[in-house]
Every structure is written in structure tokens, then in C-alpha cells.
Design a protein around this nucleic acid. Structure first.
Lengths: 412, 412
DNA sequence: TGGCTTTCGTCAGTCAATCAGCAAAAGTCT
DNA sequence: AGACTTTTGCTGATTGACTGACGAAAGCCA
């Protein structure tokens, strides 16, 4: 129905399932000949490859074609306050090679982005892939970003980054599309792509030093007017009344349920804890006070989530971040409050669960963001038609086609 | 760039500004001949009409073409708890004829929808327009609606409506697309279309007997997983702690800031007030207690909106509903709380304002919903191509073309 | 009124995309 | 090994949409 050139075919095949030409003809309503001609540029580019043939039904077995995530690369980065991760991923978001290093974001954009580019070059050399294999770059930053321009806006913890043109700087090294977004937004995208591909109304909540969220509603990531949608850490909750937050206000959720706050509570009980990981260790060791503190943090977070559930009516809430690693205690507190308080209509199909993606959620999300952009049907069509400049004698420079990895998706 | 047949041209012209063929050629990048051929079906259908020619620059003046909202009709209905409004509107959402009547929604779907269809038939006769001029129907209902199917889901105040197939029933009379949605969602659409056409991140808040909202984020109306997005009336606020709400829970915003709650407070002060309109009258008469009560309601609402602002980062909040009619007092209370509490990044470009659309906001929104659906480029293309069944000899039944109103949009 | 300028509608030609049919290829089955 | 079945790539034909150009139309100006 939705006739859209090779890009449309790739969109269909990107679910990873191999299909025969006849399958594709059936799905699109086109003839087999049209499918073949549309498939040609995708095969040339290596984006689609033949995999093991289907079982014969008596005659010649039909060749099955599948999306080849290894055809090109995407560079993904997750820059945190004190650490940065860069990764080379394939077109399915799978990490090919990854480096995490201690790096203060306060070093400024040039230093951080230079390190990023340098590390990526190293990855490319190790993997013996040319820089031209990279088709896009995705970057997550720990603050508000105007996604359309890729510029951070008034970030509280990123001195020197305000208004810095990240894409322009990165493109001096890699002349491809550069997508920048808030790191929690990217974690939401990563979690969604990895485990909840068809979830159109979800909230990804990160509970660590800060508390933030990424909101996917109506099937698209919501960034808001200034790129600060999902900034739920400084919503007021009742138990925080009067407590001072680092943001200058009082009663903020973060001030009682953020990792430092929970750790501080434990210190009052004579326990040793400063970071979220310390808290998690105590919980895992079975310390009752720690368990109770985490569960209470869950309840406080639940008070805030209650409002989000009423407001945007999601069908899924995924909780991640360091504090979420403490087994089910945080989630239990959240569920307790949300299911008790919210309206039945909003909660009857609401699933609250723990993030399964580990610390690499950020880079995976950055990769997804970049891949989604680069492999959007319209863009693929441009790419594919540029392959046939004048007629049928194809002389476009098909560099690197022989380098394509033969990752062969298996049958369902 | 976005080549899309006649529908694309109509999309451009729907802003109401008349354009010459050369203008359109410039905008689309197509030749004049292509424009003319694409224009032909639109002219045949009457959706586009020539208006006063542009000033001549020495030679033949170019004909200016404009969208003709009067070419077809849309039926729009806003069904409230105790009253219903039906209207015939043109394709710009302008009301052609309207009827409001006392009608209990508890009479059940058949009775209400029959009245609706009957009244519309009367409108059509009065305006001497055939029923075939109606290209879509939009209906707003005071409860949760699964928009994709048009069925109400567990509505609290609509006995007999749960799961009723509204579109199927209405299509027995008018065999056109029937779009159903929550009434507050439609008010949001109406307000947006009427006054904020390019606002992609807005919240429309209705403060009346109940408190609800319609959320437009990322440029699209957010309905959530179960169609109950924007249901903010039962979010907990601090001042309502312990107060029983009609929903069965306590601490709901509605229980202290809804119109009945405010009226009850005034009665405690010895004033006579039961409905929102009573409260508004008292405020307008300058009663200090009433003014203070409304302002306090604004503050309570502001506490809730604070969370919404942090969460979804809108650039506009429009406040409507009966309590919003009391001058600026409600808004003042809202602003006081929101601007004091929310983060600078979220509020620096946030506009909080009063609804300018009157009680007809609901029908206008219903009309917009139906028009947007019916005049979506893809649908217009279908419609237009069906006009040329085989080649160029156009013999499609062009009924009612002579009935088209000559509403002539004026130049900017 | 007649000449000039500019736009409008039409027509044939071009180009890309798709389809139908066919021969070759690649299997299975006896 | 040979007959049979089914897929594949190719070719010419058809379709649909757009371009470019031309004469007609419609207004200014003298």
C-alpha cells in the first residue's frame, strides 16, 4: 500500500526476519519484478543479503533475503558527568566495540569530542573498517539538548557546553549526520528498541544521582518545547516538604529519592554509603535499613509517577539507573504507590518493570537514534537512487562492499 | 520536495491564503503544467476556487486560487453530561448552523445519536444542502474513548455507552468516516486550530465540574494507551489531603478546585453558589471571598500543572471551562504557582493564557478532527483520482458542484 | 482600437516504474 | 540420469506523470 521505493523494503526487512522475494511481493502488493529491481540497490549496498534458502517445496528453493546489520557502522556515545562511553555499533544497535573511560564533562566540548573522535578512529583501525563505513553518529549528553540543532541549552552540569554546536564540531572528523540528545531520552530509546519494540506509550525512568525520564508517547520520543521533557527529578513530593534540593528549591523528589539522599539516610543509621552502588550493595547484602530506605524511595517516586500515569497514560514504565539494580525493592515501592493511587483505567494495562539493559543502555539508544535517522525510508531512497546516476550502467563507487560482515540472521 | 499529488496542493492551500499557479509551482518545485493538472480535480470538486485576480504587472493578471471551505460540510457534535451540541461546519471549522439542547447522556447512545442525526438532517434541510455534502462526522463524548475504534471505554458518567460502536451506529445515517474522541481532547484541538496553529506542545486545561486536559505534544494529540491521557482531575495535591473525592479516593485536585468544590467553600462563607457559573457571577460582582477562593483554586491547579510542565515541557497552557470565565483570577493563581516552582528552562518560554474560544470549543474541535481526517493528503488523492476513472474523459458524477458557496478568502 | 505583456490550457515527447511472459537455473522425485 | 517443479533474471510493452513549448486568452497602455 505504502509505495516507497527501496527504503520501504528495507523498513520491512529491518525486523530481522528473512523473507523471500515472493513474501515481499505479497506484503507490498507489487510484482516480483518490481521487488527485484528495488532490491538491487540494497543488495549492492550490502544492506540486504541472501541467507540460507528456504526449504524446497518440490522445485527450486526460494532465496531468502535478510537485513544485514553489519553492512555499515554507526558511532554512538554516551557522555556522563564523570565518565564517557563510545561504541561502534552495527545497524541493529549491537555493539561491535566499546570503550568506557573516566572523563569529566567539565573538560569542555572540544576535549570530550576530540577524545571521542580519537577513540572511534582507534576502534575503526582495530576492526579494520574504513571511516566511510560510518553512516551516522549518535551522542547522548547529561543535560538538556535542543535536538533539532544538536546544541545543549543551559545545561546545569556542563560548563562550556551551552549552545556549543556539537554536530558541526563532530562533522569535522566524521562528515555524516550527527544526532544529539539527552542521555535519558536515549536510554528510553535503547530500552524500547531492545525489549519493547511495539510499545508506543512508555516512560523510562532513571534513578541514580539524579532522577530523570525519557517519554515515548504516541510512538515518538517526546522532547517538549525546550528539550527538557521528562525532567521529573524536581517535581515536588509530600515527604520532601522543606528539604533543600541542590537545584535551589525545596521538596524536590530528587532531594529524598536520589541516590545521594538515600545514602545520606543510611549514614544517619550508622551505615557506610555515599553512592548509589553502595546502597545497592547494602540492599543485596540483606541490610534491612537499606531495603526499607530503597523501598521508601520507591514510594516517593511512585507519588510522582502517579501524576505521570494520570497525565500521559502510558502502558509501560521501565525503571533503570543505579538504584534500580537493588533487586525488586525499588520497583516494589513504586508499584505499591502507583497501583494504589491511580485510576483503574490508567493502571489496568500498565506494566511497571525493571530495565534489563545494563550500563550500555545509553550508547545503545544513541546508536538507535542514529540508525533510525540514517535508515529512514526516505533517506535510504536517496542513497539508493544515487547509485544509479544515469540509467542502468552502474558505476557508482561501491567502496567497501567486500568488507561487509556476513552476519546471517537465523530463521524465526 | 514532498511530491504528493493533489492532496499536497490542498494541504498548502488550506492555510487560507490565495495563491497563483506560479506561486504553487514555486513552492512545490513542479512545472506550471503539472500544477494545473493536479489542480483540475480540486477545482472540479470545488475544494479550490478562483478568487479575485492578482493585480496585473502589465499583462494578463494571474488568477489566484484559494481553498474553498464551503465546498463540503462536516458534522460536529459535542455531547456533554446534560447538554448536547450539534453543528454543521464548513471545512475550515466555521460553524454554519448549530443547535444546543438539554439532553441527558444517560438516555443511552441510541437516543442521543438518533437526536444528533435528526437535528443534523434538519440543519441540512434548512441550509438546503444535500446529505452527500457531508464528508465526515466528528463527535466528542464526556469520557474516555478508544479513538481508533470510536468506542467509549468504561465511562464513569455514561451508562449504556461502554463499548458501544458509535461510528457504526452513526454510519447507518451518514455513511462517511466518523471520528470519536474525548471532549476535552477536542477542545484542545479546537483551541489549537483556532488560535495557535503552530503550537506543537500545548496543554488545554478545562476547569468546570470536572477538571481534565487535552495534551498536544510533539505536534500530535496524545491519547495514551487507554485513551485517558490528560485525566488530571484526580491527581493528588497537598491542600486536598484527606478530602474525599467523588471518585472514591482522597486528595484529588478536583475535590478542592473543581467548580462544585469551590461553590461549596463559598456556601460555607454564607454565599449562594452551587455551579461554576454561580461562582463566576460572584467573582464578577467583585465578591472578595469568591475571588480569593478562585485564586486559591488556581494555586491548587498550579501545583498539578507544575508537574505537567516539568514532565512534558509545553510552551503553552490554555485554560478553559466555566471557572476560567472569571476574569484573570484563576489564571493568576495558576501562574503564581507555576512560575514560582518550575525550573527556568521549562518556564522561560511558557505561555499560560485563557481560552478565547467560547462554549463552542468542543464542536469546533470535533469539526477539526473530522476535517483533518477527511482532508489528509493521502485521502484527498484517493478522492481526486477516483474522479478520473479511465483516462481524461471525465464523467464522474460531480453532484452538487453548483451548490458550492462562494466564500472568497481575502488577501493577507 | 491595436499593440504589448503575461498567464492559461493543451499537446506531444520524455522518462521512470511496473507488469507479463519467457527461458534459464536450481532444486526434488522416480 | 531424466522428468518435473518452482524460482529467478531478463526483455519488451504499457502505464502514468512530468516537462517544454506553443497558441489562445486576458488584461494594460497609448
Amino acid at each position: 500500500m505504502d509505495n516507497g521505493g527501496p527504503g520501504e523494503l528495507l523498513r520491512i526487512l529491518r525486523d530481522g526476519r528473512p523473507r523471500t522475494r515472493a513474501d515481499l511481493a505479497g506484503i507490498t502488493g507489487l510484482g516480483r519484478a518490481a521487488i527485484s529491481s528495488r532490491l538491487e540497490p540494497l543488495l549492492k549496498l550490502g544492506l540486504v543479503v541472501p541467507v540460507s534458502d528456504a526449504a524446497s517445496t518440490g522445485g527450486r528453493p526460494s532465496a531468502r533475503l535478510a537485513f544485514n546489520p553489519g553492512a555499515r557502522l554507526v558511532a554512538a556515545a554516551d557522555v556522563g558527568a564523570t565518565h564517557a562511553t563510545v561504541a561502534l555499533t552495527d545497524l541493529s544497535g549491537r555493539i561491535v566495540r566499546e570503550t568506557t573511560e573516566r572523563l569529566e564533562i567539565s573538560c569542555g566540548p572540544e576535549a570530550v569530542l576530540d577524545w571521542l573522535a580519537m577513540t572511534l578512529q582507534g576502534h575503526l583501525e582495530t576492526k579494520k573498517r574504513p571511516a566511510t563505513d560510518i553512516i551516522a553518529v549518535g551522542i547522548g549528553l547529561p543535560g538538556p539538548v535542543e535536538h533539532s540543532t544538536g546544541k545543549p541549552t543551559s545545561p546545569p552540569i556542563m560548563p562550556g557546553w551551552d549552545g556549543f554546536d556539537v554536530p558541526a564540531y563532530v562533522q569535522q572528523t566524521f562528515d555524516v549526520p550527527v544526532l544529539v540528545d539527552n542521555d535519558v531520552n536515549l536510554m528510553a530509546l535503547g530500552e524500547r528498541a531492545t525489549r519493547w519494540p511495539n510499545e508506543d506509550n512508555m516512560i523510562f525512568l532513571k534513578v541514580a544521582t539524579g532522577i530523570g525520564s525519557g517519554v515515548v508517547s504516541g510512538g515518538i520520543l517526546q522532547r517538549g518545547a525546550a528539550g527538557v521533557a521528562g525532567d521529573v527529578g524536581h517535581i515536588a513530593v509530600s515527604r520532601a516538604a522543606g528539604i533543600q534540593c541542590r537545584c535551589g528549591k525545596t521538596a524536590c523528589l530528587e532531594a529524598i529519592a536520589g541516590a545521594p539522599a538515600v545514602a545520606a539516610q543510611l549514614r544517619e543509621n550508622g551505615l557506610e554509603a555515599t553512592t548509589g552502588n553502595d546502597v545497592v550493595s547494602l540492599v543485596r547484602s540483606g541490610d534491612l535499613a537499606a531495603i526499607q530506605a530503597v523501598r521508601q524511595a520507591g514510594r516517593d517516586i511512585g507519588e510522582m509517577l502517579n501524576m505521570c500515569v494520570s497525565f500521559i497514560n502510558p502502558s509501560l514504565i521501565v525503571v533503570g539507573g543505579s538504584l534500580a539494580q537493588s533487586g525488586e525493592h525499588l520497583i516494589a515501592g513504586i508499584r505499591e504507590t502507583v497501583y494504589a493511587r491511580s485510576t483503574p483505567l490508567a493502571t489496568q494495562h500498565l506494566n511497571i518493570t525493571q530495565s534489563a539493559t545494563g550500563p550500555e543502555a545509553g550508547v545503545v539508544g544513541a546508536s538507535i537514534l542514529a540508525v533510525e535517522y540514517a535508515l529512514a525510508p526516505q533517506r535510504v531512497n536517496d542513497f539508493a537512487t544515487r547509485l544509479h546516476p544515469g540509467g542502468h550502467q552502474n558505476t557508482g563507487d561501491l567502496q567497501n562492499v567486500e568488507l561487509i560482515a556476513q552476519s546471517s540472521p537465523t530463521a524465526p
